[in-house]
Computed example of a mutant assay.
Amino acid sequence: MHGPASPGWLLVALCAATGAYCLLRMRSSDETQRRAAGDEALMGFGMAVMAVPGSAFTPPAWVWPVYAVLFGGVALRALWVVRTGPHHLHHLVGAAAMVYMAAVMTASPTAGHAHGGSGVPLLTGGLLVYFTAYVLVAGVRLLPAAGVTGSPAAGRALAWGDRPELARACRLSMGIGMLAMLLTI
């Protein structure tokens, strides 16, 4: 991605740490949580690789089309899973955003948007609005509810992979990472 190296490396660290935690979540006893964690781990690691500053490593030209195909496959899988419930729609939007960013990098790997006009392209703007709203809603969901005491497990200790507040924090950090990446293309 484009932009200064220091924030780029912070974004790489954030996305890689999120992907690593999602791998831990894959050890959950709940199958749907394991499947979601796998999708989120792939997204986290994919974002980490994509966010490596161009000043540190310039990937060969074939990397971006491969990324587009990989996340196109993820988007098709997410499209298939969306039929089971609208809560999977975010995975579809995230995968489509990764395809879009890879396509932009394929078209112009060093200069960002090469659309010739001024301003933000419509699709980038739409994705920025979506991920901004997602981050705000996800942030509010992390706030403790008024009057709630104790954990939802009612006294039983939850494993690291089964902690819902950590899963929500993981999704929030990936949403923030996606916003940062969209701002740099």
Rank of each mutant, 00 (worst) to 15 (best):
W64R: 09
R168K: 04
H113W: 07
V104F: 01
H87N: 08
G94L: 04
T106W: 08
G139Y: 06
G150R: 04
S151N: 06
L23W: 05
Y21D: 04
R156N: 06
G147P: 11
L89Q: 15
L179I: 15
C170T: 12
M26T: 09
L42R: 13
L24A: 07
A51G: 06
C170F: 04
C15R: 04
G3W: 08
A180H: 11
A169C: 08
R83N: 02
M98L: 13
H88P: 09
A68H: 13
T106R: 00
Y130G: 11
L123Y: 03
Y67N: 11
A111W: 03
R141D: 12
G54E: 10
V74N: 04
P164F: 00
C22L: 07
A78S: 10
H113C: 06
V129P: 05
H115V: 11
T106Y: 01
V93T: 15
A102K: 03
A111G: 09
V135C: 14
Y130T: 11
R35C: 00
P53C: 00
A154R: 08
T84V: 05
W80G: 12
L10I: 08
W160N: 05
P53M: 02
S108R: 10
M178Q: 15
M43F: 13
Y100F: 15
S118M: 03
G72L: 02
A153T: 13
A75Q: 10
P59H: 01
P164H: 00
G44M: 03
T58E: 04
M26D: 01
T32Q: 14
L122R: 12
P109T: 02
P121D: 01
F45I: 07
V63Y: 15
Q33C: 01
F45A: 12
D30W: 00
T184K: 11
A133R: 15
A56I: 11
A5T: 15
R25A: 15
